[in-house]
Amino acid sequence: MRQQALDMVHELARRDSRVVFIGSDLGPGVLDGMRREFPDRFFMEGVSEANIIGMAAGLAMDGYIPYVNTIATFLTRRCYEQLAIDLCLHNLPVRLISNGGGMVYAPLGPTHLATEDLAIVRALPNMSVVAPADETEMIRMMGVSLDLRGPLYIRVGKGNEPVVTGHVPDFAFGKAVPLRSGRDVVLISTGAQTGQTLKAADLLAEAGLSAGLLHLPTVKPLDRDAILAAAVATPLLVSVEEHTLIGGLGSAVADVLADAGVLKPLLRLGLPDAYPTGYGSQEYLLGQAGLLPGQIAARVQERLATLS
């Protein structure tokens, strides 16, 4: 997914002379083709994340469209004031490609786990937030990112995620993608977690339950109409996210329901409000949080049993 995002930066640079790339301490081969073809629009700035946000803001004020790439935790925790003041206050068209959303960098420990990044960037006025599910959706999103007003946060998964949106022809910011209809429950997910959630829907179907799946590639602005329509169509909504339960997708869905005055059971599945106590692979930590497909399906069945 990350490679497709970077390849699209190079393609966009060919289409539009305003596109520039800014990296922070990335590998020597990253976007080497763009560096050779457009050396005056390729910058690798080292370990200076707060500085590159200011640099990107300055270039945007001068008419460029910067695409910034580094690790998600560094783009959010380390640069929060620069995101708020340099980018969002001025509503500048800077695109933040954040590597390793969620627990991608699990072996590196809590310093590299982007488990609260959506909460951080959702809180910023003017910031749009997207989390594509797979490489095909990433390509479609990047293809239309030039024309978006204001700053954009792009949450990038590990790579090699199962392609679940290959049949979707276009990408529209703020629009949900219905992947499956269902009568008994509608699962709502975003980003790479959507692939895991689709497997959970399959397991629920094997158990005789009709489980819908609503993929929200845009976390902000959220597709209110799609969420409210799902709430009308089913007795239970379930949000699933590789993110803390505080301030992420589930919180956003709950906000939509509350603001509309809709009383609907909502089961929120995500990461606990705690740092992980051990180290391991991404899959291991997902299992510890109950976010593997079988665990998701079991939690849904438990909640549905309380509603009958």
Rank of each mutant, 00 (worst) to 15 (best):
P217L: 12
H167A: 05
T190K: 00
G294E: 13
G102W: 11
L222D: 03
E49R: 04
L59C: 06
V104S: 00
V232T: 14
G182F: 07
A5M: 04
Y279G: 06
N99L: 14
L124Y: 08
L198R: 11
N160W: 14
A119P: 00
G150F: 05
E49K: 02
G63H: 07
A176C: 06
R77T: 03
D16E: 07
I53Q: 07
R183G: 14
R180I: 08
L31Q: 09
V68A: 12
L307A: 02
P235I: 09
P221L: 13
I154S: 00
S251T: 14
A106K: 10
F74I: 03
M141I: 13
V156Y: 04
L198Y: 03
A211D: 09
L12R: 02
E137S: 01
I71E: 08
L59S: 07
A201W: 02
V186L: 12
N99Q: 07
M34G: 10
S24H: 03
A231I: 09
Q196H: 14
L152K: 03
G174Y: 02
Y67R: 03
G250T: 15
V168A: 00
V219S: 12
R149W: 01
S189R: 02
P132Q: 08
L267F: 04
F42Y: 13
V262S: 08
G250I: 12
V219M: 14
T277A: 12
A229F: 01
A200L: 01
T73K: 10
P265W: 11
G212T: 01
G150D: 08
V253I: 09
L269D: 14
S145W: 05
Y275V: 05
Q4C: 10
L26D: 08
L152D: 04
I296Y: 15
Q4I: 15
H215L: 11
P151I: 15
F173E: 15
E135Y: 13
L26M: 12
N91R: 14
T70R: 01
V238K: 15
A192L: 14
R18E: 10
G109S: 05
P125V: 15
G100H: 00
V20K: 02
L237R: 06
L249Q: 09
A84S: 08
L228K: 06
N51F: 08
L113H: 15
G290W: 06
G195S: 13
E11F: 07
V19L: 10
V20F: 06
L263E: 09
P93I: 08
G174Q: 00
E242G: 09
L291F: 07
Q301T: 02
D202Y: 09
F42H: 12
V163W: 01
P125D: 14
I65F: 03
G143A: 01
V94R: 04
V68K: 00
P221V: 01
D202P: 00
L31G: 02
M141S: 07
V300D: 06
A56E: 03
E81D: 14
P169A: 13
D40T: 13
Q196V: 05
V9P: 03
L59M: 15
